[in-house]
């Protein structure tokens, strides 16, 4: 069994979409590869509030951007 952490592409795709939109969100156009990795898998669907994206990417809250001084642990 494969366990996907919340910051994998698959869970990002699920976070942003309903099940029926999954195909469209896989922008490679090759949905087969996504379905392959989903087999025998446990997928965590969570709110974006809890995540540990390695790039620390985030949606800006203001048009002028967010200025943060933050150190990852």
């Amino acid at each position: 069994m494969i366990f996907f952490n919340q910051d994998t592409d698959a869970t990002l795709i699920y976070r942003e979409s309903t099940g029926s939109q999954v195909m469209k969100m896989d922008r490679t156009g090759d949905t087969g590869s996504l379905l392959d990795v989903m087999r025998d898998a446990v997928i965590c669907i969570g709110a974006p509030g809890i995540s540990s994206d390695r790039m620390r990417e985030r949606v800006p809250e203001h048009p002028w951007g967010n200025v943060d001084a933050y150190t990852s642990a």
Partner: peptide, 11 residues
């Protein structure tokens, strides 16, 4: 990130 969330931005 090219294959990431299209709304999110890298600091």
């Amino acid at each position: 990130v090219p294959n990431g969330n299209q709304l999110a931005r890298i600091p």
